[in-house]
Design a protein around this nucleic acid. Structure first.
Lengths: 234, 234
DNA sequence: GACAAGACTCGTACAGTGTGCGAGTCCTGA
DNA sequence: TCAGGACTCGCACACTGTACGAGTCTTGTC
């Protein structure tokens, strides 16, 4: 594997007032969160920091590496309760909710997480604390890894889809209600001959989008945890 | 027989040999599947089709729209069994496996699905057939939507993560084994003080990556379906 | 104080991107 | 023969990431 940004270290100390990696990461995070991935360019980022575009490259090897840093930053925001405090099941629930909230806070994340492995310090720390939590639950051997992986995959899957909807709405320039009505109408026409689908659309048409997302998440998570509980060694 | 007025279907259809949207979509799909999202540019795509770059824009309004077409194309590859044939649970399993296989066939998908809503014809058709399947299972009211959503989210979550690993390996230029050893070694160092993590790493170190992905997927899916089954109305 | 060796900044340049525009070519139907 | 649509495409524009090399500022050693 090529050496990643994590494996490299720098020797000496800075002296005059100077750009720092921390500053850069923070500014980039702001842009990303408010304007999305497409809104982040090295030139704009430099302008925001009041520096020349290519100055950034002394602190960060590459835009891609910068994004690696940002991703790992987000992993640092996720809570993983210690099993003693909450017990396995509610610990897993808290973890799942925290992870979901983090993803919703950083809607650019789904667009980039799947193009690289997550091996930064925060990611691995999250991983290890997660394994402690699931290990304490009493899973056998490799089921620990599988169980935790399932929960994370489920959370990413749902939260990512939620993000997709939200960014679509934002980009459409419509209000949420307008957008929902438009999409429903479009779907109604497209599936006019399908009774099940029409019923589903009717069911959704007068429910608040946010609460529906919440309910769907809780429903799925509960089911998954139920299923996992059945795999615990007795 | 020579073609006569009687056998000739259309007097004058494709007079000049011309680009078609179907051609464009197909060529773009090939590039995407083999070279990834970053490998697709309108100029290269045009070159592959032996045409000028901007000629494409007569057939397709925008690169983004082209990607919408491609996404919907992929949804068309997913099997949704009819409930009469397989029953709900095995139908859902077949569906999940088919969806996963589709995502693995198109590793560029995770990078783009979450930036737009999926409302193309194939996506909506998949949705409605899915609802039929889950509806036949006997879920109450809105649980139909939630149940199907959970399964899809889980599948996307796991398959996306799998894709991330696979593309990382591909981009590293190493063999799978080399890459795995490198990553494990890095993780070992990073979490040297964490017994649970070390144990997990040891567990993974001598297992084939592909079979581990498969096992993890089946494990999680089974758990989720178990949990869902508990929500069926009696 | 002189001087070298970093640490750091940044203007310029290059190759590449998506795509708007307008001119050009071909084909069909009248 | 002519009009008009279908279709192609070169050029140009604004923008991207980043390599390069020349600059400046700071520190440490004589």
């Amino acid at each position: 594997m090529k050496d990643s940004i994590w494996t490299r270290t720098r020797a000496a100390a800075p002296a005059r007032e100077t750009l720092t990696r921390v500053q850069i990461v923070q500014a980039a995070m702001e842009t990303l969160d408010t304007e999305g991935l497409a809104g982040l360019s090295m030139r704009k980022l430099a302008a925001k920091l009041g520096s020349g575009a290519t100055s950034l490259y002394w602190h960060v090897p590459t835009k891609d590496d910068l994004i690696d840093l940002l991703i790992d930053e987000t992993y640092g925001e996720v809570d993983v309760p210690e099993p003693e405090l909450a017990g396995w099941r509610s610990g897993a629930m808290l973890f799942a909710h925290s992870l979901r909230a983090m993803i919703l806070r950083h809607p650019w994340l789904p667009e980039v997480v799947y193009t690289r492995p997550s091996i930064g310090p925060n990611a691995t720390s999250l991983g290890s604390r997660g394994l402690v939590l699931f290990g304490a639950g009493g899973f056998a051997e490799r089921d620990v890894d599988f169980a935790m992986g399932s929960v994370m995959s489920f959370v990413f899957g749902t939260a990512n889809a939620e993000v997709a909807v939200k960014t679509s709405i934002k980009n459409s320039g419509q209000t949420t209600e307008e957008w929902v009505q438009d999409v429903l109408e479009q779907a109604r026409v497209a599936t006019a001959d399908n009774a099940t689908m029409q019923e589903s659309l009717r069911r959704r048409s007068n429910r608040d989008l946010a609460t529906m997302h919440n309910e769907a998440f809780v429903f799925g998570l509960d089911c998954l945890l139920d299923g996992l509980e059945g795999r615990l060694k007795k």
